[in-house]
Amino acid sequence: MGIVNALRRLSPDSRNTLVAVLTGLVAAYIAYGIWDFKATAVLGFMVRYSTPLALAAMCGILCERSGVVNIGIEGQMLVGAFVAFFGATWAGIVFGVVAGVVVGALLGAFLAVCAVSWRINQIIAGTVINILAAGVTSFFYRQGRTMKGSMPTWEIPLLKDIPLLGKVFFQNQPLTYLTFAIVIVLQVMLFRTPWGLRTRAVGEHPSAADTVGVNVSLYRYGNVAAGGALAGLAGALLSVEATGTFERGMTSGRGFLALAIMIMGRWRPSLAWAAALFFGLLNGLVNQLNFERVIDVPPQFIGMLPDVLTIVVLATFAGRVRAPAASGQPYTKE
């Protein structure tokens, strides 16, 4: 009875989330029952694939929730990956990751300077970051270096023994766990803390925030820089954790995909994570179908499946998604 009452007290949003999560779990365990380790393999891929995307999408959410469009996530990630890797070859992976995060934050701050202080069009500023990142990382790349140390895999005691979920979620690497934490923390912070309320107000109606003494510029600076830090971390995740190497252009469009995920996730950390997991699931299924050779379809068609599905989903269900109202608008005090 208590549970029923508790359910009733939940907001429709939380209730839907709960229903979705439960449905997903049931489906996952049915699949696990039928296909056993193959289900684990697909879901494991889902988590790995989605993690950098989710992290990058968090960057987008932080920026846009406070009213700044960040189309330079791709570039911030790439530079983050570059710096993190070479940092790791020079002074170890901890240094590398921190360096990647710091440089990401600097690029975020650069975007903030452009958007808030110089009032440059934000799409241009982001594009500048993207071009510069591609050029600089490629120009200064030197091969033949290896990281000092490597990211370990941490198995969380007890949790790791849960069938299916244990292997999928609790036998991962540090930055992956960090991403889980960031998503959850960000979700809570955005909707439960003063900082979150103010951030959302700054992104929706900056003058309303201003008139109650919230420093709009400062919030935008802080959040866009923090967003850049997250993008840098996502880059570090790619180079130092997921691959252990840096290659030119290794972000392969993930920064742009993150924007799509952010929008699909309606600018909410938890939903964006779900969207990222959805992409991961699709791509994992693609691989598994290839492995099993159950279908004789050219990989190109399988490769475009996630994209076609996304468009169909958006066209059918999402309807008009509502961006933070002031996203992309520079704020001038009257």
């Binding site: 170890g92 992976i93 901890v94 990751v97 921190v98 995060v101 000092k148 140390g149 490597s150 990211m151 370990p152 941490w154 690497q173 540090p174 930055l175 766990y177 960090l178 934490a181 960031i182 923390v185 830090a229 971390l233």
Partner: peptide
């Protein structure tokens, strides 16, 4: 930042 540093630091120990 602290969160990220914490996790990264632990990663280092392990490495």
């Amino acid at each position: 930042l602290a969160l990220s540093m914490f996790a990264a630091a632990c990663g280092g120990d392990d490495a």
